[in-house]
Write a protein that binds this DNA or RNA. Structure first.
Ligand SMILES: [Mn+2]
Ligand SMILES: [Mn+2]
Ligand SMILES: [Mn+2]
Ligand SMILES: [Mn+2]
Lengths: 231, 231
DNA sequence: TAATAAAATTAGGCAAGACTAATTTTATTT
DNA sequence: AAATAAAATTAGTCTTGCCTAATTTTATTA
């Protein structure tokens, strides 16, 4: 007769590649907005089917990395936050490495880091961090979590929020797709570039901007909302 | 009516993690000895069941990476050799990186490189190679394949082959387990160390050696056969 | 409120890559 | 050559992580 199948639930310190990708996705959705994190939102973000997400929600719940409540949606537990933060730390550190040490372009590093973030070794992130000189931000302007989980300021104001005539410094990008990053490069915009908002077209919210005081270009509202600024 | 399910067999350029590990294992068995590569040998080397190996042999054969003949055993095709060489190249380059740039110890790097070798990006190995200064050998003394597939000399004479009174330089290690590498470190032996064979004990082929002209130590035959030398 | 649309869930299935157990083939000994 | 041992193979199972299709639940709208 079986009295007890499992007395306590030992926390599982090792996660699969898929579990890690889900964790990171949930972490991003949680940081991006204050919105409820639904199975559909996760599915969309990962390009998976909602049914698959429901499966994984069950697994991550069993591992005590998330809590799921139909009304509140998905929430990371303390352990889940910790684990997700470490994956993000590794991702952003590898991005710095790929750009600064191996000479990759801005738009090439994200996909490679997407694989490298899963390399498991207790001291790897800390050694890499030291080797890179403890960078605060990754090449896209996202703050790199420190070993203790803390991190520098995340920018949230976008170019679209700037008022007419105002100046700003490009602090980060909200989108890491090649198409967007290559477009920025074509416009000579990178982290640190100074931009002045000359005019906002009422019709479609297009923005007329001056890049580094020189050129005068028109960009779309979508573009403006993808550029994070420092004022 | 179906006339043709598949006109030609397009070569699959992407391999799964498992396929890559099998490929590399077959490559190693092929280099190590001139022996016939059997399912059992592969199974032993990977710690898998022979039945699983038979499954994978079928898959790699379908992908035209190996040929399997009951009499000749497993052989890599030209494509299989090429792909396996690239994986070995990545493995050894990452080992150099982990040791030289991140300060890992001799015995810690192999397992991490075992994961890093699978990162897929067309230019990653070449960029890393350049960043490291085009090293010829990895930290265990194994030659690193160049981008064109060629590589420096592999050492094959072992300390056990040295004749009494003879001198040699440690060129490489045949075993990358922590237990062996830590033992070497304890004996102050690393790549480049000079060793003289003082005496060979007839009873069990133990070796009495002098390390860097100083100490006088006795090591086992198994030890002697795991150290590759340059004379 | 009833009808409709959207979201979540369940049920069932599939491929990869491992396993065990049973069987067949090949090699080695008497 | 027959008996035995070892190796290879087949058959069937399991888990992970995904899918589609059907169903149920929840939200929105008329
Ligand atoms: Mn990833
Ligand atoms: Mn980034
Ligand atoms: Mn590997
Ligand atoms: Mn090595």
């Amino acid at each position: 007769m079986l009295f007890c199948l499992c007395l306590y639930n030992p926390i599982n310190y090792m996660h699969t590649l898929s579990e890690e990708n889900y964790l990171k996705c949930i972490y991003r959705l949680w940081q991006d907005k204050g919105l409820k994190i639904t199975p559909t939102a996760i599915a969309e973000s990962l390009g998976n089917n909602p049914a698959s997400v429901v499966d994984m929600i069950r697994k991550l719940t069993d591992k005590q990395l998330i809590n799921y409540d139909k009304k509140k949606g998905v929430e990371l537990t303390a352990q889940g936050q910790k684990d997700a933060t470490l994956i993000v730390r590794r991702h952003r550190l590898w991005e710095v490495f790929l750009l600064e040490k191996l000479g990759y372009d801005w738009d090439e590093i994200h996909d490679i880091a997407e694989e490298m973030e899963h390399i498991k070794d207790a001291s790897l992130a800390d050694r890499l961090d030291k080797f890179l000189g403890f960078p605060e931000y990754d090449p896209h302007g996202d703050p790199i979590p420190k070993a203790n989980g803390k991190m520098a300021k995340r920018y949230s104001t976008t170019l679209a929020d700037l008022k007419t005539g105002g100046y700003c410094r490009v602090a980060a990008v909200k989108d890491t797709t090649s198409s967007f990053l290559q477009y920025l490069q074509k416009l000579n915009i990178s982290i640190g570039t100074k931009i002045q908002l000359i005019e906002k077209i009422p019709f479609d919210s297009s923005l007329v901007i001056s890049i580094d005081g020189n050129e005068r270009t028109t960009v779309s509202q979508k573009f403006g909302e993808s550029v994070l600024i420092d004022m």
